[in-house]
């Protein structure tokens, strides 16, 4: 009896240690849960990383991606979507993974350079060719005959950047008078005929369905629409002021640990910071953070007068609470 138990223990040890190690050496699967407009970026990046990882380790890595409104994606992960990696639109949504799901450490933003934002972007206007409504700046969006397309800030990270950029402009114009600022935002949203749940949905509304005069868009999304979705049909307008959007990335530690993919997930994100990763970001119209690549693509990105989330809004926690939580300014102005 004891001998057979010993034999079983030995066999278990052999299979328990050796067999999985052999199996893992062949294929690693990762799930990157991202926000709406990063489809093209991560299509390109996943291929490059798979080739890099194969060369480095001999392993095949297969990265699946899921896209949607940033807030919705964060909620999906908290509700159990087994993401190894989260690449969301704003830090607040990643914070939720810690606060509501305990899926990542509190100091997640310190794990990678630039507060874990390997690339940045901003908010610009996409208008139809010839800019028939002569839209130049935020002030033009509240005119009576202008139809504005933006997603719902309750579900879309991009929409929250749009909202805050508009808010910053209105505050500046109105000498920080909050009542007048709210009135401006209220007028702007009265000109929004359709609220999509995510940025890609709004692009569809504006570009494919032909609705609206101006799309408030991620810069990368605007470039994509102009150069690839509707060549010659659109123009980009850079407003006098916009916001520096810093989409963050993180390993979802709890799930990656469960899958045994921590190392490859970390390498995946680190690869975003390499010259190759930054080139791919720039080619997909995201502003690179690596100086050498940023200089190389300097001409591609217009100079913008930025406000910043930390400096001008007290960080994402404060901005979320004031503007987008239940009963916040968005609820107040949108219910009017």
């Amino acid at each position: 009896m004891k001998k057979s138990l010993l034999a079983i223990a030995l066999l278990s040890a052999i299979y328990g240690v050796a067999a999985p190690a052999t199996a893992l050496a062949k294929e690693v699967n990762l799930l990157n849960v991202s926000y709406d407009p990063t489809r093209e970026l991560y299509q390109d990046f996943n291929k490059a990383f798979a080739a890099f990882w194969k060369t480095k380790t001999g392993d095949d890595v297969v990265v699946k991606t899921s896209h949607g409104g940033s807030g919705k994606q964060a909620r999906a992960i908290i509700d159990g979507l087994d993401a190894d990696i989260a690449t969301l639109a704003l830090a607040y949504d990643v914070d939720q993974l810690q606060e509501k799901g305990k899926l990542i450490p509190k100091d997640w933003q310190k794990h990678l350079a630039h507060n874990s934002s390997p690339y940045t972007s901003t908010i610009v206007f996409l208008v139809r060719k010839g800019n028939p409504k002569n839209i130049k700046d935020w002030g033009d969006l509240v005119k009576q005959n202008v139809s504005v397309i933006t997603p719902n800030p309750k579900t879309s990270g991009g929409a929250r950047w749009n909202y805050l950029a508009a808010w910053a402009y209105a505050q500046k114009q109105n000498g920080n008078d909050e009542a007048k600022t709210k009135e401006f935002i209220s007028k702007l949203f009265k000109n929004v005929p359709v609220l999509d749940t995510g940025a890609r949905g709004s692009t569809t509304t504006f570009v494919e369905r032909g609705i609206g005069d101006v799309l408030l868009a991620w810069e990368n999304e605007a470039f994509l629409a102009q150069k690839e979705l509707g060549v010659g049909k659109f123009e980009i307008v850079v407003p006098s002021l916009s916001i520096l959007a810093e989409p963050p990335v993180t390993v979802v530690d709890k799930f990656a640990k469960k899958h045994g993919t921590e190392a490859v997930a970390k390498a995946y994100l680190e690869y975003l910071y390499t010259e190759e990763g930054q080139e791919i970001a720039a080619k997909n119209y995201y502003r690179p953070t690596l100086a050498s690549v940023a200089k190389k693509y300097e001409a591609q990105f217009p100079k913008v007068n930025f406000v910043k989330i930390d400096e001008d809004f007290g960080g994402w926690q404060a901005a979320q609470k004031k503007h987008f939580s239940d009963g916040g300014t968005f609820d107040q102005i949108y219910q009017k």
């Binding site: 359709v194 609220l195 749940t197 509304t205 032909g210 609705i211």
Partner: peptide
């Protein structure tokens, strides 16, 4: 019409 159709899609 387009807005109504799009709202239907959404």
């Amino acid at each position: 019409v387009k807005v109504l159709a799009r709202k239907g899609e959404i």
